[in-house]
């Protein structure tokens, strides 16, 4: 398929399907700190929604509320019309998959095995079946292998299927994470800074990939700092500042809003508050930084 023709150049002429995700009045408090305050977000089928905001605006926290990592203090998240239990596993099973801001691949597994882990929730071979290995088990295993390989091909990593994830270059690791999320057969995929640390060429490839994902009929939510990327990619953009919705609209509307520019450049008298927000952002990111993860794993082993 040719993706160039699908890129929206003018104000989106596209029409979208039924709402996939409806978050209403989501509030997330950590003690006295309100990280997300009364955010409403609706994502429709076939839509690419951008989520922007300065550091510490609560984008990742909001993501975690959507995907069941956190239980929102107030408000509710409806996915395909039902409120999901705040458990990541049920959320994935219902059809919402995500990637991480800091790549969280299973480094010592091959690329193919990583994607096959994504198939876990769509297969159901249990212990006895796995030990006896009847025809049904083998069929299911071959099927998940085939689907995993297809997703690898889809993101352009088909040739690396037997390589260890940790040996892949950085850009490929990002794409592998997307393939792993896609393998869970989602209706909605949430990408947390998919182009962080990428060069312009890789960013362009990532954009192309996201369009292709959208063309598969998925809804996409993207967190990104790269404004050029987000405004050329998204159908709608939602801007968060200090946990609150600043504006939501088409890329053109958001781009021209002076408050968005102010929020990014900052105002002198708000320095202090920003520092607080930033400090919180670091706290929030800490559990997911690679160093912290390593530390925890070593502890587990000890």
């Amino acid at each position: 398929m040719s993706t160039q023709t699908l890129q929206p150049t003018a104000p989106a002429p596209r029409t979208f399907g039924a709402p996939v995700l409806e978050a209403s009045g989501v509030v997330m408090r950590f003690g006295g700190l309100t990280a997300v305050n009364d955010v409403n977000l609706t994502v429709r089928e076939g839509e690419i929604m951008g989520l922007i905001g300065p550091n510490g605006a609560g984008k990742t926290t909001f993501f975690n509320c959507l995907t069941g990592m956190y239980k929102p203090t107030e408000g509710e998240v409806k996915f395909l019309g039902t409120v999901l239990p705040p458990k990541p596993r049920s959320v994935v099973k219902a059809g919402m998959a995500r990637t991480f801001q800091n790549i969280r691949l299973f480094g010592n597994m091959t690329a193919l095995e990583n994607v096959m882990v994504g198939r876990y929730c769509r297969t159901n071979a249990m212990a006895l079946t796995s030990i006896i290995r009847g025809p049904k088990y083998r069929r299911e295993e071959a099927e998940s292998r085939r689907i995993a390989q297809e997703w690898l091909d889809f993101v352009g990593l088909g040739h690396t299927s037997e390589h260890l994830a940790r040996n892949l270059p950085y850009g490929d690791q990002r794409r592998l994470e997307i393939a792993r999320a896609l393998a869970t057969d989602p209706r909605l995929i949430l990408l947390d800074e998919p182009t962080a640390g990428m060069n312009p060429k890789e960013t362009e490839q990532a954009k192309d990939l996201i369009f292709r994902i959208r063309d598969k009929g998925l809804a996409v939510v993207v967190i990104e700092h790269d404004m050029r990327f987000i405004f050329s990619l998204c159908d709608r953009v939602h801007c968060l500042v200090r946990g609150e919705t600043l504006i939501e609209g088409s890329p053109q509307e958001v781009q021209s809003d002076h408050r968005v520019i102010e929020a990014y450049i900052g105002q002198p008298d708000e320095d202090e508050e920003e520092m607080v927000a930033e400090a919180h952002a670091q706290d929030e990111a800490a559990p997911s930084t690679p160093a912290a993860t390593d530390g925890r794993m070593k502890e587990d082993r000890a």
Binding site: T67, M69, P88, R89, V92, K93, A97, R98, F100, R104, L105, F106, G107, N108, M109, E113, M116, V117, G118, Y120, C121, R122, R180, A181, T184, P287, S288, T293, M297
Partner: peptide
């Protein structure tokens, strides 16, 4: 594969279903 995923990164494994 599930066990390996848990050993590698339990949070990510949970988030992958």
């Amino acid at each position: 594969r599930g066990w390996v995923a848990i050993r590698e990164d339990e949070k990510a494994a949970e988030a992958m279903g």
